[in-house]
């Protein structure tokens, strides 16, 4: 069989054999895929299908509905869509994703990438290392560090005090702002690295030519550099959107989604409903909605950017 393997480059080779033999060969060749496919089917596809099914039952953590959940049709969804908590959580998720990823990480990441290009070498390596360490740390460690930073007697309020400004209990008064800023701190490194790599690919001759023709700095950036790295930008935007949609630990440690549900994005709300209030069916419905949103973004990403799969 080994001899019949085809060359990738040509896609045809000596393996032009007859029908049934070809089919057998094709099956044999796929055998090494089996362990991966089995794992994916049980533990990734399984929960997704379970999510669709479970959201149609009244399953709970304890009591009769835990042992023998009843099929309740779309009741969880009608409850969900008529609940103000769900809609406010959807808005919070939107604020969190737009604020921390699309604006915060994206703009700050680009600014850092540009500054790194212009700065001198020691400053460049020290600052990029600090920013990257924030991203490499385990998420829960980052979350504790930021909890301390934003808490009532934390470093932020002390620094504000030096400036003569009045601090506040950020995690209680403005929890969604605190977790949004925290996620900017945590995730900016990724955008910075993507944009640094993209900027390094832009040939300096082009911007130099524009400079000689009298284009100003902002003109060169918006008319030349940005269009040349637009693919990196759209890839980055999509990836950080999906990453931010799934953020749980940071919010859970800093605010627990609270006070109440005032900083509960969809993953946090799903957890709260299922495990704090024991409404597994309802929590599963939230999970399903979140999966559908993530899935839609993923499809847009694959459609628009058409990554090569061959």
């Amino acid at each position: 069989m080994a001899i019949l393997l085809d060359r990738r480059q040509h896609g045809r080779g000596p393996e032009r054999t007859s029908g049934p033999r070809r089919a057998v060969q094709s099956v044999l060749r796929s055998v090494p895929l089996l362990p991966a496919v089995a794992l994916l089917a049980v533990f990734l596809l399984g929960p997704i299908l379970y999510s669709l099914y479970g959201s149609l039952t009244d399953r709970s953590l304890t009591g009769p509905a835990a042992a023998n959940p009843q099929f309740v049709g779309l009741e969880n969804y009608t409850d969900l869509f008529s609940s103000p908590v769900f809609w406010s959580s959807l808005v919070l998720t939107l604020v969190f994703v737009v604020g921390s990823a699309l604006i915060g990480q994206n703009v700050l990441g680009m600014a850092l990438a540009l500054l790194l290009q212009a700065a001198s070498r020691p400053v460049r390596s020290v600052v990029s290392t600090i920013v990257v360490v924030a991203w490499v740390l385990p998420e829960i460690v980052a979350a504790f560090a930021l909890y301390a930073f934003f808490s009532g007697t934390g470093t932020l309020n002390i620094a504000l005090g030096w400036l003569g400004l009045e601090g506040t209990s950020w995690l209680i008064v403005l929890p969604i702002l605190a977790v949004t800023l925290a996620n900017v701190w945590r995730g900016t490194a990724f955008s910075m690295m993507v944009y640094s790599a993209a900027l390094a690919e832009v040939p300096p001759e082009i911007t130099e030519a524009a400079e000689i023709d009298g284009a100003s700095g902002p003109q060169r950036f918006f008319r030349i550099t940005l269009p040349m790295i637009r693919r990196a930008i759209s890839t980055n935007l999509m990836l950080i959107t999906l990453q931010t949609l799934g953020v749980f630990t940071l919010i859970w440690v800093m605010t627990g989604g609270g006070p109440g549900t005032s900083s509960a994005t969809l993953p946090v709300l799903a957890y709260q409903q299922a495990f704090k209030f024991a409404q597994v069916g309802y929590g599963t419905a939230i999970a399903t909605v979140t999966l559908v949103i993530g899935g839609l973004f993923a499809i847009i990403y694959i459609r628009v950017l058409k990554p090569e799969v061959d």
Binding site: S26, L44, S51, L242, F275, L291, A298, I299, I302, D310
Partner: peptide, 30 residues
Amino acid sequence: YHQRFKKPFMYGILFGTCLPITAMMVPVYA
């Protein structure tokens, strides 16, 4: 190898990398 299912499989894989796994933890628990 060139196989008919390769392209859909790779797109499926790519789709899988994008899913918000944290959103799935409730059904995973169940």
